[in-house]
Structure formats: structure tokens, C-alpha cells
Computed example of a mutant assay.
Amino acid sequence: MSNTKFGSPDIAPSEVAERRDDDDLFVLDVRNEDDYEEWAISGSHNLPIYDELLDGDFSSLEAALDEIPEDEEIAVVCVGGITSADAAGFLNERGYDARSMTDGMRGWGRVHQTYDVDERGVSQIVRPGTGCISYLVFDDGEALVVDPSQYVEQYGDMADERGLEIVGAVDTHAHADHVSGGREIADRFDVPYYLHEDDAGSLDEYTPLEDGETIPVGDRELDVLHTPGHTPGSTSFEFGDAILSGDTLFLRSVGRPDLEDGSEDAIREAADDLFDSLQRLADLPDDTVVLPGHFSDEEIRPLATTLERLATDNELFQLVEEDDEELFVETIVESLSDTPNNYQRIKHINWGDEPLDDDAEDLELGPNNCAAN
């Protein structure tokens, strides 16, 4: 055993995200196996030696050098970027080109990547570490932020880069998996914060959304469709030939209906509502572009498809197209997984029942569990 400490240069989590398809970058995760299996960077390699590294013991890393390619760059990942720095330094002294990922998986959870959706006046902001998606919808110098994360500077910077003025923040629903930045954006830019009243909880400083109304942005409008089921106030938005479906409809699943009330009767009632909402979306033109609020392991960027393709690719949406409500509800009830305990805390923060404190960032860390199956 050795208590030697090694230093190493850093690699930003954003660079790791940008190079996810780069065969010259090998991502080595040194966290314990349980942590890795729960939440990890796609395509990374796990060497579960975290506890040993904490004790300054590099013997298992030494023994595993054959698993680490000598002709690739190495990005070493741990929880917070400290233990990985020791591991990367150890590798560098043995001739490897290794860097420690800044802030570890905490840094990974903060990454935001932006993709323009053709020429529709929509930019999609993907958080690969959390599976969350937000949007900048814009026209004629104005922009609305839809489902913003708590890292509101991301949206201000993005608007500045595009020469846009933020004129409002919108949430498709009261989120359970991430802390909304909607109210902070409203305060910072002195603009409205829009949310359906059925999801407003204890909030009083917001502009309630109603089905059928519109939100202006530039010379265009965001059309409001109340699509309850995932939550009572879940809302989707039409913008031209695109639908921002929030957590109502994903590329391979739909939003789970049990986050408000986990009793079976309540789940079945919410699933019935969700079925009706999905039927409403299914009535839109087949070539409508679906822009969801979450993703799992889909590789396409931006995350987008058409309603016509979903009729083939999404099992639960197929049941809606087939008008099989009974099987739809039963499939959801039987396939729901447990929800993380922190989801309730996040909900109460977004409802205004609890203050936003220093724990808010850590509450979001981990895999996303908003899909029904």
C-alpha cells in the first residue's frame, strides 16, 4: 500500500460529452460497482477501486493496466474529481495520457449541450448526465425558455450568443427529477413565468397557462395544449410543425403517472388521463416533429422524431393509436419502477413548499426515472 498522492491535468465534463463518439478517448470510471451500475457515462469502463484509492492504495490499478489502452487519451472519472486525479496522475507516471474529469459525476450532471432543430426556431438543450431536455424557442429577436434547469446562466449565455432577448420562462409541468430554473429566470430577466395552475402547488408568482391559449414570441406563438396524466397540469406546446411534449410523450415511452399519488386507483385514473392526452397528440398531423422533455440512451441528436415514426417505435404510443386503453393502463401499472426518494423533495421545491438550498444540485444527480417503462 502507498499513501503517495498524484496530480494530473483536468478534462472538462463538457469535452467528455462532446467526444462521446470519439474512439480516441477512453473513459475510465473508478467508482464502486454499485454506484457505476446505478448511474454512469455511456460507453465508459468501470474499474471499481474507489475505496482503495481513497486509502492511497494503487495496487489494483497497477494490476489492471492491461485493461487500459496505451494509445488512447484517458479520462478518469470518480464522484467529485479528487480520487480520479490521483488515479490519472498514477497513470501519467506510467506513460499514459490521462486526465481527471473535473468535479467527477457531479460535473457530469451539470453538462448542457445545445442542438438546433433544423430551421424551426428551436434549440434543444440536452443534459447527458441527467437525461433532461430543455428548449429555447425563438423568433424575431425574442426567446422563451421551456423547462429550464437550475443553471440559468446557460440560457442567458445562449440567448446572448444568438442576439436574443428572453421574454419568458415556461415549464411543461412541475418537475420531479430536476429543480426548475423558471422562477429564477423570471426574476433575473423580469419576465413572466408560465405554468399550469394544477401544477402550481403553493406558488403565487406565476402566470397560469390555459388550454387553447397562446404565448407570443417574436412574430410567432407557442400554442398551449393541456395534456394531463404525467401530472395534473402537464402541458404540451405546439410551435409550427413541432410539438414540445414535455413528459407526456417520449421517443420510446410516455411519462409515468404515479409521481403525484402512488396508490393503484390514482395511478389508473392518471393513466386514463394520459391515454386521452396522447390521443389528442396522436390526432396531430403524422409529420409533426416530437421534441420530448427527457431521453434515456437514444443516440440521435437532436432528440426528435415524428408522430408517424412513434407509431412504430413506441410500444405505449402504439396502444394509443390502436385505441386499446385497457392494455395501455395495465402495461403502465405493471411496469412502473420505484421512484427515487429525492423526487418528492424536488417536487416540493418546484411547488414552492421548500426553499432552494445548497442541496438542490445533489438532489438531481443520478439516473432519470420519469418514463413509465
Score class of each variant (00 low, 15 high):
residue 14 S to G: 11
residue 4 T to C: 13
residue 141 G to E: 09
residue 195 L to C: 08
residue 245 S to E: 01
residue 290 V to N: 02
residue 219 D to G: 14
residue 114 T to S: 04
residue 161 E to R: 15
residue 41 I to M: 04
residue 89 G to M: 08
residue 246 G to H: 01
residue 87 A to M: 05
residue 143 A to I: 07
residue 368 N to T: 08
residue 44 S to F: 02
residue 157 D to A: 15
residue 115 Y to A: 11
residue 154 Q to E: 15
residue 321 E to V: 10
residue 152 V to D: 01
residue 222 L to E: 09
residue 289 V to W: 00
residue 171 D to F: 01
residue 288 T to Q: 07
residue 1 M to N: 13
residue 36 Y to F: 13
residue 42 S to A: 14
residue 220 R to S: 15
residue 86 D to T: 00
residue 118 D to G: 10
residue 97 D to M: 01
residue 38 E to D: 11
residue 3 N to A: 06
residue 121 G to H: 12
residue 167 V to S: 13
residue 232 P to C: 04
residue 333 V to I: 12
residue 229 G to F: 00
residue 232 P to H: 10
residue 326 E to Y: 12
residue 55 D to H: 14
residue 364 E to R: 06
residue 60 S to Q: 12
residue 122 V to F: 03
residue 173 H to E: 10
residue 39 W to K: 06
residue 123 S to W: 02
residue 242 A to P: 01
residue 290 V to D: 01
residue 132 C to I: 03
residue 206 Y to I: 04
residue 339 T to P: 07
residue 105 M to Y: 07
residue 123 S to A: 12
residue 156 G to A: 15
residue 231 T to Y: 08
residue 38 E to L: 13
residue 87 A to Y: 03
residue 40 A to Q: 08
residue 353 D to E: 15
residue 45 H to E: 11
residue 339 T to V: 15
residue 236 S to K: 06
residue 208 P to W: 05
residue 32 N to T: 14
residue 293 G to D: 03
residue 46 N to M: 11
residue 101 M to Q: 04
residue 46 N to Y: 05
residue 251 L to F: 00
residue 170 V to K: 00
residue 329 V to S: 04
residue 32 N to I: 11
residue 355 P to Y: 02
residue 44 S to W: 03
residue 203 L to I: 12
residue 367 P to M: 11
residue 151 Y to F: 12
residue 114 T to Y: 05
residue 5 K to C: 05
residue 1 M to P: 13
residue 62 E to I: 06
residue 20 R to W: 13
residue 164 L to P: 04
residue 173 H to D: 09
residue 113 Q to T: 12
residue 150 Q to F: 13
residue 137 V to P: 07
residue 106 R to I: 09
residue 275 F to M: 14
residue 83 T to H: 04
residue 27 V to H: 01
residue 70 E to W: 07
residue 112 H to G: 08
residue 135 Y to N: 04
residue 336 L to S: 10
residue 160 D to E: 15
residue 326 E to I: 14
residue 201 G to Y: 04
residue 298 E to M: 05
residue 117 V to D: 03
residue 129 G to E: 01
residue 118 D to V: 07
residue 259 L to T: 15
residue 101 M to W: 00
residue 152 V to F: 02
residue 204 D to A: 05
residue 255 G to P: 00
residue 2 S to L: 11
residue 168 G to F: 06
residue 286 D to A: 07
residue 146 V to A: 09
residue 166 I to C: 07
residue 260 E to Q: 15
residue 121 G to E: 11
residue 357 D to H: 13
residue 266 A to V: 10
residue 262 G to I: 08
residue 139 D to E: 08
residue 361 E to V: 15
residue 3 N to Y: 04
residue 255 G to Y: 02
residue 316 L to T: 04
residue 119 E to S: 15
residue 333 V to W: 05
residue 104 G to A: 05
residue 186 A to W: 03
residue 277 S to M: 03
